[in-house]
Amino acid sequence: MRAHAQLIFWAVLVAALALLPPVVGVLHEPFYVELVRRVMIFAIAAASLNLILGYGGLVSFGHAAYLGIGGYAVGILSFYGMNSGWLQWPVAIGASALVALAIGAVSIRASGMYFIMITLAFTQMLYYLGISIEEFGGDDGMRIKTRSQFSGLIDLADPVASYYLVLVLMFGTIYLVHRIARSRFGMVLRAAKSNEARSRAIGFSPYSYRLCAFTIAGALCGLAGALLANHTAYITPDFMHWTRSGEIMFMVILGGVASSAGPLLGALVLLVFETLLAGWTEHWQVILGPLLVLSVIFFRTGLAGIIPGAGDE
């Protein structure tokens, strides 16, 4: 029965997202393609965070760093005239993975609140680095004149084509995180989250597993960064601002921690809601703020917990 509900949920989700461009095309509302594409890019970032936060229990308050690194990788290569996506995207993913590996190696030894703060501190450092590098626009950021080129296979400047690319990559990421979480590796990760001492006792050192997960999450978020850079055709240190890390974190929680659909649902609701509220009143934050508080207090399962079929197992 549950499996049935899950199947329906995912089928509806995939179909709705896949049908969006033709539907809004008929309605002459192309803006929603832009909005939902942005939502899906953030869903990739949120899904990557969910791997370490939801399944691994590592509350990283600096996940926006990889959004920035992925974005800057695309921007910097394009600045030097290297526009091939075959080069840019692997560099974006690889650079994010490397930085995540370095940050993780230092941070994962810390726990709880210390971990939250140390990941935040590293991201702040990268943020200030971004501001002070003049070659790449410093605080102003930098325009990306040519979007990533894929040997003519796909034109990222075409909103609909890039929408479908993001769609595929997003479901790919969600599926990948889903598989990792249910693999033997993921089991160890989750076991260490619920009881670190016990998982040590049965012979697993959580450190290397966590570091590995942290690096994978960084790499996936780097992909989101590369996509975001192509989406806005612009990069700025603002990608790495600490409030951005907070937003990604909130998407995960709102959607439902440690659920496959959660990051997408959270990104969708938060960004659509933000756009609607901002269009309604400039004081939208006074409404959004208490809603965040209320959702944390009363909405512990997240959206995935209340939508039939959206939850896992």
Binding site: P30, E34, L35, L228, Y234, T236, A278, E282
Partner: peptide, 19 residues
């Protein structure tokens, strides 16, 4: 409202033009 962020500004501009 661009919230002083380039990507938000871009999104707002697109919303204005397309919607």
């Amino acid at each position: 409202d661009d919230q002083a962020k380039p990507d938000v500004g871009l999104q707002v501009a697109k919303e204005m033009m397309q919607k």
